[in-house]
């Protein structure tokens, strides 16, 4: 089951690569694509993600589509923030590495949480050990693990739990 889904996803990527379809996609392209997808999925069979069927559930797709604009909003805000700090003549930065905790348990959810943290205002994931994340923050505010967690992690956790767990 997992194998078949992996082959199908790889084959879909191949179809995207050989676009545009009506112009130059003959049966040979499709057939070669199937063979290549089979080879790649066999070679990397225990590297591929464990639960590919999760990507097909409508509930998760819906929450992922909610998540994308939410994330892009914070991403643009992060860029304006960085531009302000870089162009300001005094460079108002107060950097430091803080410790936050997350409640997410699945590996993929934690990975995407870390990536989102890296692309949002002033924060960069330095290391992840179990449930603990160590975040380099360009402008440290507040004191203690709870306060930092409330600012950095909570804004993504709610949606990511619905997408990945």
């Amino acid at each position: 089951m997992k194998q078949v889904l992996c082959i199908l996803f790889t084959f879909g990527l191949w179809l995207l690569l050989v676009a545009p379809w009506p112009v130059n996609a003959y049966w040979a392209d499709v057939l070669v694509g199937l063979v290549v997808a089979l080879l790649v999925a066999t070679l990397l069979s225990h590297i591929y993600p464990d639960n590919p069927h999760k990507a097909l559930q409508p509930r998760r797709i819906f929450w992922f589509l909610v998540y994308v604009p939410y994330f892009l909003f914070y991403c643009v805000q992060a860029n304006l923030d960085v531009a302000y700090r870089v162009l300001h003549p005094d460079m108002p930065i107060r950097p430091g590495i803080v410790h936050v905790r997350t409640d997410l348990t699945s590996d993929m959810a934690k990975t995407f949480l870390a990536n989102s943290i890296t692309l949002t205002p002033g924060t960069l994931t330095v290391d992840i050990l179990g449930q603990d994340l160590y975040i380099h923050w360009i402008n440290v505010e507040g004191q203690g693990v709870e306060a930092h967690t409330a600012v950095i992690v909570k804004r993504f956790e709610k949606i990511l739990r619905r997408v990945f767990e």
Binding site: C6, F9, T10, L13, W14, L17, V18, V36, A37, L39, V40, A41, L43, L44, I47, Y48, P49, D107, M108, K110, T111, A114, N115, T125, D127, I128
Partner: peptide, 22 residues
């Protein structure tokens, strides 16, 4: 390497090898 690199490699490695074959 760390968990993040491993998981993103899981997602991306297939695409890289597929692109090489393309």
């Amino acid at each position: 390497m760390s968990l993040i690199v491993k998981n993103i490699t899981r997602v991306v490695a297939g695409f890289i090898i597929l692109f090489g074959a393309y």
